[in-house]
Amino acid sequence: MKKVSSKFPKCSFLKDLKIVPKQFFPSSFLDEFNEEENYKLFEEKIEKFGSLILTAFNISNNLLYLAAQCQNQPSFNIVYSNLEKTEQKISENFPEIPILQNFQHWKELLLKNFRENQIIDEKTAADLEFEIINWLKEINSILQINITIFHDTCPDYSKFKLINEELNRLSKNIVGLEQSYSTRIIQQIIIAKKQSGLTIYEEKFVPHANLNPFLIGGFLSAISSFGSELSNRESSMKKLTYDNFEIEIANGKLLRVALILLGKSNNYISEGLLKIIKEFENNFSEELKDWKGEILPFNKGSSLIRKIFPDLKNDSIPTKEMSTSLLFTPKSNKLST
């Protein structure tokens, strides 16, 4: 066997890279390496492998740019052209990656519902941003696998420092993007007593959030009771989906919390919801133990919520009912003075 080129003194033959997931790198690139092959060609293949990884980072940057556009009332032209360019780049370099099908779906949806230069509505833009975050996560996951394999195979490759820096930057950008998306789609929070369905706290984070907190609290309680009747055991609804919004629901020992969302929920929101329940039940344990309908003590809940979602807008808009010091009479479900 010939000695490997000094440029890659610890590099195995390219056939060792056949375990790389084929949905990322083209199968033609992973053909078994012929040991008699010219070592210059071998080095060229290694360089190409590294170049493909860097190309994947460029594609990720395009997606990050498109996600940023989704946050600022994008026009049809900007979104469609960027989708098309990114799709073409993926198709040319990574034709076997599954997310290509999603690009086609979104292009068809945009062509069907929007005209040239038309502003894309907030809900559609949020849904596309949700998809982009998932695409970025998939690319990031595949990149991590391939970079690890590549490093184990060719540890002396000259561009590994750059590759690792790009990988760390991409991972941080995805986390930041997901948190930003989550904060922006939270429209309203409603916290109610689990047993009675009576609302103890409500806060709006955007002016156009207009769901009645008392009706929602009672509605969620009724649905939960209905589910329990059907299953003969305690049952709880976790999500309600409508055309223009979603309601993400979580239950604690004493409280039920609902988030009204403009877009699709994710793990960051679901985990945050459980943390809010824990904060409220721990900090208001005495008030909840023998609750007589007084809602004023729960007004400091805003600071607890922002411990979980620190980027929520501070210009909250409390409803007229929740800003009063009136009492709820739990049994009658009416306001009393």
Rank of each mutant, 00 (worst) to 15 (best):
Glu248Lys: 13
Ser231Met: 01
Lys159Ala: 04
Lys10Cys: 07
Asn210Pro: 03
Trp291Ile: 11
Asn93Arg: 03
Ile19Gly: 13
Ile149Arg: 05
Glu246Lys: 06
Asn58Glu: 04
Cys11Arg: 09
Leu110Asn: 02
Ala222Pro: 02
Ser158Thr: 00
Glu129Ile: 11
Lys194Cys: 10
Ser332Asn: 06
Pro318Cys: 07
Ala192Asp: 08
Asn164Tyr: 06
Phe114Trp: 15
Lys320Thr: 11
Leu30Asn: 01
Ile191Val: 12
Ser285Ile: 11
Ser196Phe: 05
Asp121Ser: 02
Asp152Ala: 05
Ser225Ala: 00
Val79Gln: 00
Leu30Phe: 04
Lys331Val: 05
Phe103Gly: 13
Ser158Asp: 06
Ala67Thr: 07
Asn134Tyr: 13
Ser91Phe: 11
Asp315Lys: 03
Pro297Asn: 05
Ser302Leu: 01
Thr153Leu: 05
Pro207Cys: 15
Leu211Trp: 00
Leu240Ala: 10
Gln187Pro: 04
Leu83Val: 14
Ser171His: 06
Asn117Glu: 02
His105Cys: 05
Ala67Ser: 06
Leu220Arg: 06
Pro26Tyr: 10
Cys70Pro: 14
Leu143Ser: 07
Leu255Cys: 09
Ser323Met: 01
Asn168Cys: 00
Ser265Arg: 12
Pro98Met: 09
Glu116Cys: 01
Glu166Asn: 00
Ile191Asn: 12
Asp311Met: 03
Asn61Leu: 09
Arg184Thr: 03
Leu111Met: 15
Lys275Glu: 09
Val79Lys: 00
Glu321Phe: 08
Asp152Phe: 06
Lys264Cys: 01
Ser171Tyr: 03
Leu63Cys: 04
Lys334Gln: 14
Ala209Tyr: 00
Leu54Val: 01
Phe205Ala: 03
Ile119Thr: 12
Pro74Ser: 12
Ile276Phe: 15
Asn140Val: 03
Leu100Cys: 02
Ser158Gly: 03
Thr124Glu: 08
Gly263His: 09
Phe245Ser: 10
Pro21Val: 04
Ile191Pro: 14
Asp31Ser: 13
Glu287Pro: 04
Pro330Cys: 06
Ser236Pro: 01
His105Asp: 02
Lys112Trp: 12
Phe114Arg: 08
Ser158His: 08
Asn72Ala: 04
Ile90Leu: 10
Glu138Trp: 15
Lys194His: 15
Leu259Val: 12
Thr324Gly: 12
Ala209Leu: 02
Ser303Cys: 12
Leu261Met: 13
Thr329Asp: 05
Ser303Thr: 15
Ile191Met: 13
Ile191Gln: 04
Asn113His: 13
Lys193Asn: 09
Tyr65Asn: 14
Gln188Tyr: 02
Lys253Ala: 11
Leu296Glu: 12
Asn168Gln: 01
